[in-house]
Simulated scan of single mutants.
Amino acid sequence: MDDVTAQKIGGQVKWFDPVKGFGFVVADSGGPDILLHANVLRNFGQSSVADGAKVELLAQETQRGVQAVEVLSINVPESETAAPLSDFEELDAPDIANLPLEPARVKWFDKGKGFGFANVFGREDDVFVHVEVLRRQGLAELQPGEALAIRVIEGQRGYMAAQVCSWEASYGDKS
């Protein structure tokens, strides 16, 4: 693609559907919606993005309209309605950040139910993954078999993810 014509644009995710393989971003400066294809998002290291997330991207005009060609950053959407999970009430962000990142694969995830499970390398028990944990990282959904890096706590009913990162995002982490 011709990066010379790509423009840096800030905006907000209108919606993204990983099953359909695309979604749209509304530019802060207005104008037509910007198509965000799943491949562009995967190049950033994510398979989904939460509705309302703030993004910075490179976009260009095509024959089909304005399309994102590269995602530069994603910031978690601000949610005033999200209730904290009771398992995390005693933990704060530094406590979670001090947990080791562990390699995992998504076993299954049901966005409608709001949860799923992951298999962590070296652990016999599945790890519960709640949609609210995904939202805190700017993710909307997970796909079966997707590689992740997660921080795990022992919750009231067993192991659960306290933080979920894309596998690619974990490379720079030295935990």
Rank of each mutant, 00 (worst) to 15 (best):
G122K: 05
H37T: 11
F128W: 10
G52H: 01
E132C: 05
T62M: 04
A104H: 03
G114N: 07
R105H: 14
I74M: 04
Q67M: 04
P77Q: 10
L41N: 08
G65N: 02
T62V: 08
G21A: 14
L41T: 06
P18H: 13
V69I: 10
E141W: 13
H130A: 12
V76M: 02
L85G: 00
L91S: 06
D126F: 12
E90R: 05
D125Y: 03
F88M: 15
D87P: 04
F128Y: 15
K20H: 11
L58N: 09
G21L: 14
Q67N: 06
G112M: 11
G30N: 12
A82I: 04
A83C: 00
R42G: 11
V76N: 04
E61W: 01
D92L: 07
V133M: 09
P94I: 04
G112C: 10
E124D: 15
G116H: 09
A82P: 00
F44R: 08
S73P: 01
L72Y: 01
G31W: 13
L134M: 12
V76I: 04
R135F: 12
A118Q: 09
E89Q: 05
F88Q: 06
W108H: 12
L134Q: 07
V106S: 15
G116L: 07
G45D: 10
G138T: 09
H130K: 10
L134W: 09
F109S: 09
S73W: 02
A82S: 02
V106G: 14
N98T: 06
P18K: 13
L91G: 01
A140V: 00
E70Q: 15
K111F: 01
A59K: 02
V71I: 14
L36W: 06
P94L: 06
P103M: 03
K54A: 03
F88T: 08
L57T: 07
L139Y: 08
H130T: 06
G112E: 12
E124M: 11
G65K: 01
L99A: 12
A38G: 04
E89W: 00
G116M: 08
V129P: 03
F128C: 03
N43I: 03
F109Y: 13
Q137Y: 01
I34L: 14
A97M: 06
R42P: 09
A82T: 01
G21M: 14
V69N: 02
D110E: 15
L101M: 13
F24G: 08
F24H: 13
N39P: 07
F24E: 11
V127L: 04
P94Q: 10
S73E: 04
A68K: 02
E90T: 09
Q60E: 13
V133Q: 01
A59E: 05
S48D: 08
S29F: 13
P77T: 05
A104Q: 06
A53F: 06
Q137H: 02
T62W: 02
E61D: 09
E89N: 05
E102F: 05
F128V: 03
F121H: 04
K111Y: 00
V25L: 12
E124H: 12
